[in-house]
Design a binder for these strands. Structure first.
Lengths: 199, 199
DNA sequence: CCGTCAACTGTACCGCGGGTCCAGTTGGAT
DNA sequence: ATCCAACTGGACCCGCGGTACAGTTGACGG
């Protein structure tokens, strides 16, 4: 169970898949000299789709835990649901600001390379997307119970909007080669939320 | 200048690249039986990057013209800059609703497949992104002159937000295999704008 | 001390797809 | 008649994904 070759490979993928795209990663590169052999790769993963699936699961898991940590911090800092929501968004924005030079989202990356992967990868991606919506939705629902949004707004769509804004801004940032776009967009989303949920 | 093989190939790409990803398109498929030969492909395009660049230019051009048509319609319908903005967003939302079953954005698609393409493609993509911002920014600036937004908001970020919301929602919609996500997100963006720019 | 099994390594091989080269054809403009 | 652009066809190379399989190494249990 220790740090096997499998983990070494997954580390490399996590680093490079977003930067360069899954398609650009060859098995030989992943099983880079001194690390794992080509055969070692196929010992652990049936094919590249299998690798993609595993990397996706890992990425989503890490993201989820990270988000939940932010929620926990917000719960420590305030009892008011709306305030908590605002704190979480603040923290999310900060987290995006501290991200590396070319941040991106594996989920989005996989989305436009459908045919490269099999149905299992797509299904993993679907689950990831639903998870993202639900964890924000929870915050929105409790906030709305304390303070109904005005004008009245579909909370599902509002939850999706955070994901959309982040994923979209990551694309923009990558293409324009600038830093902090996603963080700024989350702050903008935050002002939208603050308007909707103010008394 | 007529409908040469070049155009036939570009038609095919425009259809399939978003659905399946550039990577999944083989030259043999693009130069599909009865259409163009493999040699014909390389006669017109130096390599796949070259094709991607051409397809991107075409896609962006068509998108720009489409958007400008919507702006023109809005200008016919109202003299008030804020109202015009709202109409444009309404039309954009409608347009996304009428889109095909698995709509996507070539620009976003290319973004996560960087290494597949060369610097020229990336540059084309950067230009496309800046164009997108500017055409929305124009609307926002004239609207803000007539009716300053409250609370005061960075118009560049606000312009980016539309692109972000659309591109992000297209990703969400594709992954969740649902229809109309992007259209709903644009409507949500529209309510945000309407709050910011109301008297 | 021996056997066993999981976790590998190395090597040879296949097929596909991108890309090159080049010789030849075809149809319209001059 | 000729010339050129727009192709076609076929031979070829290479890198990459994937398969197959025989062999090694080290931990652990009897």
């Amino acid at each position: 169970m220790s740090a096997t070759a499998r983990d070494l490979i997954l580390d490399r993928v996590q680093e490079d898949a977003v930067l360069r795209g899954f398609g650009a990663l060859s098995v030989d590169e992943l099983a880079d000299p001194g690390k794992v052999s080509r055969s070692g790769f196929f010992y652990h993963f049936h094919d590249k789709s299998d690798l993609a699936r595993a990397a996706l699961v890992r990425f989503v898991q890490a993201g989820h835990e990270g988000f939940m940590a932010l929620v926990a911090r917000a719960e420590d800092l305030s009892d008011d649901p709306v305030e908590r929501l605002m704190i979480v968004l603040q923290l999310v924005s900060k987290r995006l600001e501290d991200a590396g030079p070319k941040p991106g989202c594996l989920v989005a990356a996989a989305c436009y390379q459908d045919r490269l992967f099999d149905a299992a990868v797509r299904e993993e991606n679907r689950k990831a997307m639903l998870l993202r919506r639900h964890r924000v939705l929870d915050l929105l629902i409790t906030a709305a119970r304390a303070q109904p949004p005005s004008p009245d707004t579909d909370l599902d769509d509002l939850a999706d909007m955070l994901t959309a804004v982040i994923d979209g801004a990551l694309v923009i940032g990558r293409i324009r080669q600038e830093h902090g776009t996603a963080a700024r967009q989350v702050r903008l989303y935050r002002t939208f939320i603050s308007i909707l949920f103010r008394e």
